[in-house]
Design a protein around this nucleic acid. Sequence first.
RNA 1: GGCCCCUUCGUCUAGUGGUUAGGACGCAGCCCUUUCAAGGCUAAAACACGGGUUCGAGUCCCGUAGGGGUCACCA
Length: 505
Amino acid sequence: MNKARTRFAPSPTGDLHIGGIRTAIFSWLLARSTAGEFYVRLEDTDQERYVAGAARRIMQSFDWLGIDLDGGPDHAELATMKADEDYAGALVDGEAKGVPGPFVQSHRLPIYKQWSEWLVEHGFAYRANETPEELQRMREAAQAQKQTFVFREEMRIRTDIQPDEPHVIRMRVLPRDGRVEFDDLVKGHVGFENANVDDQVLLKMDGFPTYHLAVVVDDHLQGVTHVLRGDDWLPSAPKHVLLYRYFGWPQPAWAHVPNVLGTDGKKLSKRHGAQSVFEFRDQGYIPEALINFLALLGWAPGGGDEQNVFTRAELFAKFSMAGVGSSPAVFDYNKLDWLNGVHLRRLEVHDLANRLIPFLEKEGIAIDSDARREMLVKIAPHISERIKKLTEAAPLVDFFFADIATPPADMLIGPKMEKHLSLHALRTSIALIEKVTPFDDATLEKSLRDLCNDLQLKPNQLFSIIRNAVTGKSVTPPLFATLAILGRETVLERLARAEKQLQAG
RNA sequence: GGCCCCUUCGUCUAGUGGUUAGGACGCAGCCCUUUCAAGGCUAAAACACGGGUUCGAGUCCCGUAGGGGUCACCA
């Protein structure tokens, strides 16, 4: 496979959506799987829709996901963006791997001006200046006749436009009656009648290019080999194919990837739940899982390979455009949750503990000392198979870090047991736990199991009493490890309080 | 409405003319088990419909239906 140079080109109008991220992931994987380059370009050609801070947050999304770039806006470039804050990350070195910048389209205005004039000079474009109202009337007229509206130069109301007066530049679709056909890596061979292709505005009255001119010019100048984008772009692809022809530039490979749908089969939106990368992050998903899941949404290794869980290195090795499907995919939270659990369990304990900290602190469990950090590290392996998301950890560990309310008496009576029997079991356990040595997982297990025999109790009967007394909950990490981590002193203190409670109740 | 795209279990998918249509998530059951999980095993579950082509069609062709996208001096 030849090296692919791909790009992701969001417009800074808000946070990156999950659908956009998936397109970015495909582009990134294509580049990495071919030892090519992947870079980011900011398409800020619409002055009206620009959102301050969006550019920075987009770059941070890549940062958090661990999607590495070979080019993109650097500090200096980002800092010049209208009303933007400084970008705090340090992941992009503007032209890291020889992709020429600038990477922000508003910094490239002279380039678009130059190439649009080139098109006019060579007969591939012309000047026009109809007002929005005039255009609207034309559209309505076409609509009334159930026709596709296409602007053509003879429809111009003013034809004597001078280069120095306000005007737009429109592409001239040629020939009038042909067809534009091209091969798409995911959609196959597609074709459009020229008669249905609009004489698209390329350069706006304000001197900014439209998307159509800007992508073509930038992708060519920046050496993009594969144009990956959402398939909502497919209807305008013929315009781009034509532009490449007019310029005499080699066509890139086209790949229009299907959209991501919500559970109801509609395009993913707010009511389907999380949308932006940051929302997923805050809900306790980890990048490893998100990337794995998104890659699988619309792509499969094929060839009888039935792997579902992938590390990023495995994705680099196995990704190929041939495996990208042509139909839209429904976003399935069940599978994401499962994958998140799988990847959580693969994390090294210190790594897991570190990722847990902010989520615990949000629940009021401060991990603010070395002792507490060490305790978390000991706990981590015992909860990793009990949580699917980082947000689920707090209720499983809170009793390690804060004292508990003494459980009510009825919680301290074992299943199918009487009060006096439970009280006896509790007292014997206390006596035993006072002298168990060493106070570790294995020894505690052995001693307490022996005690079950002595008392002729089922493990569940004795253990549930101790669990409830020490943790205040009926669902916890494994009991013996829990006791060992908590330490003899704390365990005995809680057991003593429980004994008192049960006796009184 | 015009143009374009899409259609295998509920969901993500494998499949490239001959398969008991495979896997994963979820769901159900069983096993394991100190709780909850994790893990193991088993089960239920799909080729949208109608015509062709062919000895033979999920796979090729044509329709139909359904879904989606797009028709801006927005991307």
